[in-house]
Simulated assay, not measured.
Amino acid sequence: MSIDDDAPLMQVMRHFGLARDALLGIGGEACVFALDGERIVRIHHPGAARETVVRRAQLLEDLHQTASAVPFSIPRVLETTEVHGRLLTIEPRLPGRPLLHVLGEAAGAERDHLVLRFLEASTRLRDLRVSHAWYGDLCEAEPIRTPSYRSYLELRAKKSLACAGSAFDGIDPARLAAALPEPERPSFVHMDLYPGNVLVEGRDVSAVIDFGGPAIVGDARLDPLSAVIYLTPFITTTATDRDRRLAREWLQAQHLDALFEPAERWIAARWSFATDDVRLHRWCRRVLLGHQGDP
């Protein structure tokens, strides 16, 4: 559905005096508009649960206790409200352009540099602390939370695969979970770290955005693994074979390459519910079922 077909959204835009060219992006959870030079308004899609919005705001507040430990900005909620039946948050506008867009323009050594800065940023998210002894969902309205990481992985994969219907019959969530090791301790995991959710200024990462529904308490290694996994043209449309090779070489240097395939299979199961996203669903089928197809 386009913005023009969403009457309540148009009402919210009129309430704030927002023109269409103020739109910064549309994600799985919200439409984001520039409110002014310093702030954005994140207008959640119809049906968003208030509990999810509140949990995201609390998560960001908690993470800000250690935000000085990372070399980039992260979001923060200034205000949560409801306008014309739509939940929304007002947040600071963070510096930079989405890496996804910049990669559409960059080439050669400059592009390699940006890809490596993106991957390095994925390793720094572990410096954002969460004080939970369990593993599981941070922002979901009905979160799955368990005392062991593998039990969370199994239950989360099982829930997503069930939502996907019969397409993934025969995929065993327990086997997916068993292929990944238990971490030493629970850590914050962004879980949606692809180039569209990373902002860059010049040659450096300036901000990581879109902390939301996918965020979990899990294994810190999952963010660098997923950052490499998401550099597929099924997910990151500007990704190239060179980007993928560079990322896999980087993953080897981090001594994480042995976890790539089991992490990729679990992540594909985790996103398998998103049957309305044709490209993503095709990637899930290719990873889990071996189906081929053009991006």
Rank of each mutant, 00 (worst) to 15 (best):
L256V: 13
H84L: 09
I90G: 02
R279C: 11
D219L: 04
T89H: 01
S187D: 15
A263Y: 12
G196T: 00
H84K: 08
A7N: 12
R20C: 11
R145D: 10
L88V: 00
R279S: 13
G104Y: 07
M1A: 14
R86V: 10
R50C: 10
T52C: 02
A109F: 12
I90R: 01
P224C: 01
C31D: 05
L225K: 06
R150G: 10
I40Y: 00
P181S: 13
P92D: 05
A174V: 03
P173H: 06
L87Y: 09
E105W: 11
D127G: 05
E110A: 15
H255S: 15
E82W: 00
R20Q: 15
L63Q: 03
A30M: 03
R14V: 09
S226F: 14
G96M: 03
A247C: 06
I209P: 00
A247N: 07
A164T: 14
P214K: 07
R111E: 06
Y194D: 06
E29P: 02
I40N: 05
A269H: 08
A178Y: 12
A34W: 00
E264Y: 03
E261L: 05
A207H: 03
P295A: 15
D241A: 15
R221F: 02
V41H: 02
G218H: 04
F260G: 11
G47K: 04
G212W: 00
R97G: 08
S2A: 13
G196C: 08
R286A: 14
V12N: 05
I229M: 10
D257Y: 14
L35Y: 04
L251W: 06
T232F: 02
L18Q: 09
G218D: 06
G37V: 03
T232L: 07
Q58S: 10
L280K: 09
D127L: 14
A178H: 13
L94P: 09
P71Y: 07
A19C: 10
L60Q: 03
L199D: 03
S272C: 12
V205H: 02
D169K: 13
G25E: 05
T232D: 15
D112G: 04
L99C: 01
W283S: 07
E82I: 11
A19G: 15
R97S: 13
V228K: 00
L23T: 12
T232Q: 11
L280F: 05
Q252V: 04
E249H: 13
R50E: 15
R245V: 07
G293V: 09
G196F: 04
G104V: 06
A167R: 14
S68W: 13
S131G: 13
N197M: 00
S2P: 05
S148P: 09
K159W: 02
L251P: 11
L259D: 09
R55V: 01
Y149C: 12
M10W: 02
F260C: 08
E140P: 11
E140D: 13
L193A: 00
P95Y: 01
D210Y: 01
P224A: 04
V205Y: 02
R244L: 08
G293R: 08
R126L: 12
P224T: 05
L23K: 08
E142G: 02
